[in-house]
Design a binder for these strands. Structure first.
Length: 205
DNA sequence: GGTAGGATTACG
DNA sequence: GTAATCCTACCT
């Protein structure tokens, strides 16, 4: 089965606790659709979960204008600006009223037309979306896309794993690794980061 | 109205 | 190691 014709992920599939959704999103595809008709795709290879009772979660203290969408229904985008320079993209998860999201930390990109043989831009391509700020820069994700429903027809949506990816997982040709999260000052002990072992696009090992 | 700090990145 | 850069939350 070719990739690119997978079913889109419905909000019901995302209405679970973020530590359950985060590993399940590895191997799924993030699709960015532009009004002009262009389309980018990236394989999700690294995620982190944030949720209630989690001191690293933006909604840990109270409900504010910034974290408002985290309290809403699953399947909506939560985008924020970090260090005044970069944006980070999250998928809101769990039931309405439960502040919860999965941070997409890295995408593995594939060249759209086959790259000309004799040259290897492979390495640069693999690092282009290797990090939460970098993938937002490549996919042109900013605060304008905050609060957006992730469904086909909109600027962003998600697609399920291809059957070949799922089989590779089942046959242990792919392995998901679980670690603590990156870049935090609180909640550092929670093992809520997952990534695809051996993916060249993971931000850090 | 003022300000400390951040779920990052690139460069030395 | 550290600068870049600005929104947000929290304080007065």
């Amino acid at each position: 089965m070719s990739s690119g014709d997978q079913a889109s992920i419905p909000s019901s599939w995302l209405s679970r606790p973020s530590p359950e959704v985060a590993p399940d999103l590895i191997g799924c595809t993030l699709v960015r659709h532009f009004p002009e008709g262009g389309c980018y795709r990236g394989l999700i290879v690294e995620t982190e979960a944030y949720g209630p009772g989690d001191p690293a979660c933006h909604a840990y203290r109270r409900r504010t204008p910034r974290n408002e969408v985290m309290f809403g229904p699953a399947g909506v985008s939560y985008v924020y600006l970090i260090y005044g320079l970069y944006h980070c993209f999250n998928v809101v998860t769990d039931q309405e009223g439960v502040p919860s999201a999965v941070l997409i930390r890295a995408l593995q990109l594939s060249a759209d037309p086959s790259p000309p043989s004799g040259r290897s831009p492979k390495s640069a391509l693999n690092r282009l979306a290797a990090g939460p700020g970098k993938l937002c820069r490549v996919f042109h994700i900013d605060l304008n896309l905050k609060g957006l429903a992730l469904q086909p027809g909109n600027a962003l949506w998600l697609e399920h794993r291809s059957s070949s990816f799922q089989q590779a997982l089942d046959h242990q040709e792919h392995t998901l690794l679980q670690t603590t999260r990156i870049g935090l000052s609180q909640g550092t002990e929670l093992p809520w980061r997952w990534y695809l072992q051996n993916s060249p696009a993971v931000s850090k090992r």
